[in-house]
Design a binder for these strands. Structure first.
Lengths: 125, 125
DNA sequence: TCCTAATTGATAATGATTATTGTAAGATAA
DNA sequence: TTATCTTACAATAATCATTATCAATTAGGA
C-alpha cells in the first residue's frame, strides 16, 4: 500500500526544483521554499528530494563541489558544467547505443550512463 | 619555481593509489598507508591526493556515495560503477568526437567529458 | 469525526573535507 | 657551514552536506 500524502511542503519542494530550473542543490531549494513557507525544515527538503529521486520524479545528477543536484527534467539527456561559473546546462544528444556497446564488449549489465561535459559556457568564453 | 619535495608520505600515497588499483577513496588510501607509516595524518592524505589531481598526476573521477575517488590511470577512459557492490571498473572505449559535437552544436568550449556507466558488474549479475 | 500511519520540525550525529597552528626538515643565501 | 627561509608535516578544530532520531502534527480514509 503506497500511501503518499500530498503535503504542502512536498508540493513546494517539487515546484521549487521546477521553477528554479538550475539543477538546484538541496540548499538552494530550501532557500527558495523558505521564502514562502519559513517554518520548513532542511531535513524535510533533503528527505523529499531524495524520495522524489528514488521514485523517478526527479533526477539526482550527481554531486558537484560536494552538493547533490536535482533535475526536474527526467528525459534522458546529458549535462555541461562550466569550469568558471559552475553553472550546469542541459545537453540533448542522448545516445542510447552507448550502453549496448559496453554490455556486449565487457560483460556488464549496463542499465544507464551519465555523460558530463566540462569546459567554458558561452557566457564565460 | 616548482619546488616539490619528494617526501616519504607523498611517495607512499602515490604508491598506495597505484597498488590499491581500485579507484580508492582518501580513507582507503589512508588505511593502506597507515599500515606502513602509522604516524601519517589524514590531512596529509587529503592534501596530497588533491594536489596530485590538480597537477594531473592522478585523476579525480568524481564522488560516489559522498567520497571522492582517485584513479592512477590518467589516459582518457570511462568508468562503470556497479549498483550492487559499488566497485568501479575502467572502460576503454574513449570517444574523442563527443566533445566536438557539443562544441559545434551548442556554442560551448568543451575541454573534456566524463562518461560513467552503471548497472551490474559480471560478478553481481 | 476519529484513527493512524505518514510526515514534519528541531536538532543531534555522522562522515568527508578543509583550515589552522605549531613544528621539523629541506633548500637557499651569506 | 650557519642562519634563514620555505615547504610539508601531524594533530586537531572547524566546516559543510547529509542522515538519523524522536516527539508532535496532519492528511486522508474508515
Amino acid at each position: 500500500m503506497e500511501s503518499k500524502r500530498n503535503t504542502i511542503q512536498r508540493r513546494l519542494i517539487r515546484d521549487a526544483v521546477r521553477e528554479l530550473d538550475i539543477h538546484a542543490t538541496a540548499e538552494q531549494v530550501y532557500d527558495f521554499v523558505a521564502e514562502q513557507h519559513p517554518t520548513i525544515s532542511k531535513a524535510t527538503v533533503y528527505r523529499n528530494l531524495s524520495q522524489m529521486a528514488d521514485s523517478g520524479e526527479l533526477l539526482n545528477i550527481g554531486s558537484l563541489n560536494g552538493s547533490a543536484r536535482y533535475d526536474h527534467n527526467c528525459h534522458k539527456h546529458y549535462h555541461f558544467i562550466c569550469e568558471k561559473c559552475s553553472k550546469v546546462f542541459d545537453i540533448d544528444h542522448y545516445q542510447p547505443d552507448l550502453d549496448e556497446r559496453v554490455l556486449v564488449m565487457e560483460g556488464f549489465a549496463v542499465r544507464s550512463h551519465s555523460l558530463t561535459f566540462s569546459g567554458l559556457c558561452p557566457d564565460c568564453i
